[in-house]
Amino acid sequence: MSTLAHTVGDSATMLRRNLKHAVRYPSLTAVVIALPVVFLLLFVYVFGGTLGNGLGGVAGGRSAYVDYVTPGILLLALAGAAQGTAISVAMDMTEGIVARFRTMSIARAAVLTGHVVGAVTQTLIGLAVVVAVALLVGFRPDAGPAQWLAAAGLLTLTAFAITWLSVALGMVPKSVESASNLPMPLMLLPFLGSGFVPTDSMPGWLAWFAGHQPFTPIMETLRGLLLAGPVDGGDALAAVAWCAGISLVGYLWARRLYDRDPSR
């Protein structure tokens, strides 16, 4: 068997392991889905009537706001999934299973690949649930098939990037409790961007930060795709560039942490 075939086979085994673990212990997946749904309902039904009337000076009310806020909620769901991934990786690293894998004839890339593909799969399922709830509360996208496909591709790319970063974050600390806290700042980024209000309504210094952080161009691109509006080419390019950069940094960081001396 070639090295590539060996790696692919071992990665598939690790993927099955992680998916079975998610099915047997669904609490993390449930929390990942529940949190963005709660925020969606809160912002739409409590704040939506007022905030929707302030979008571009048009009195659109709650129906306008649910269309505006859904891309931000989707990014919030992606950020929330990072915590579950970090916890899962930290459990493997601290409970000795990775040490056992190191003694077996398993491709070194398979363990991390299984975590990443499994986490991305869970995250996309969670996003589908969030979109379904958004549709039930009034989200009315105008996207055609090509735009839906582009939006799904961007969400998958973003999930891939955040997952690699969260895998690395899960290997940094020496305890599961610490690992659960490290991805938390990611959940602030949709709020400190264009996820819930336009950036031009913010103070100058905060608007500058919102315009230069990773999530804003991703949310703006998603908003343009899902609502069949104009998609700014600069935002789309920045979104893909941020995803590629975060993926690369997360992968290199995770590989370095995984290959370090376990005794350290």
Results as ranks from 00 to 15, higher is better:
158 T>P: 01
251 Y>V: 11
18 N>V: 09
234 G>N: 10
110 A>H: 04
226 L>K: 02
157 L>T: 11
223 R>V: 07
33 I>P: 00
1 M>Y: 07
97 I>H: 06
221 T>G: 07
45 Y>G: 05
240 V>T: 10
65 Y>V: 04
201 S>M: 15
240 V>E: 13
243 C>G: 09
144 G>A: 12
176 V>E: 11
197 V>T: 14
143 A>L: 05
124 L>R: 08
263 S>F: 05
48 G>Q: 05
89 V>D: 01
2 S>G: 14
89 V>T: 02
252 L>D: 13
172 V>D: 02
168 A>C: 09
183 P>A: 13
198 P>S: 10
82 A>T: 15
123 T>A: 07
123 T>D: 02
188 L>A: 13
61 G>H: 02
168 A>T: 11
118 G>L: 04
139 F>Y: 02
152 A>F: 10
174 K>N: 14
209 F>R: 10
110 A>F: 01
146 A>N: 14
1 M>V: 12
127 L>V: 12
214 P>E: 03
250 G>V: 07
23 V>Q: 08
24 R>P: 02
178 S>V: 13
201 S>Q: 14
72 G>S: 03
215 F>S: 00
238 A>V: 13
259 D>S: 10
111 V>L: 12
247 S>K: 10
130 V>H: 00
238 A>Y: 06
168 A>V: 04
6 H>V: 15
71 P>T: 09
110 A>G: 12
264 R>T: 15
186 L>A: 09
160 F>G: 00
217 P>E: 12
193 G>C: 10
89 V>H: 02
153 G>S: 09
151 A>W: 03
71 P>H: 10
115 H>R: 12
185 P>D: 15
261 D>G: 08
131 V>A: 07
163 T>D: 02
118 G>F: 03
8 V>Q: 09
246 I>H: 05
111 V>F: 10
250 G>P: 03
132 A>S: 07
238 A>G: 11
8 V>I: 15
10 D>Y: 04
191 F>K: 04
161 A>I: 11
211 G>I: 02
198 P>C: 13
161 A>C: 08
256 R>Y: 10
190 P>T: 12
11 S>A: 15
157 L>M: 13
215 F>K: 00
154 L>A: 09
19 L>V: 12
48 G>D: 06
21 H>Q: 09
240 V>A: 15
51 L>P: 00
235 D>E: 15
253 W>K: 08
253 W>H: 05
142 D>T: 10
74 L>E: 01
132 A>L: 01
224 G>R: 01
57 G>I: 14
190 P>G: 08
13 T>E: 14
73 I>M: 04
84 G>W: 01
238 A>M: 12
199 T>S: 13
251 Y>S: 08
37 V>A: 05
78 L>A: 09
127 L>Y: 03
171 M>Q: 14
202 M>Y: 06
166 S>C: 06
90 A>P: 02
154 L>M: 11
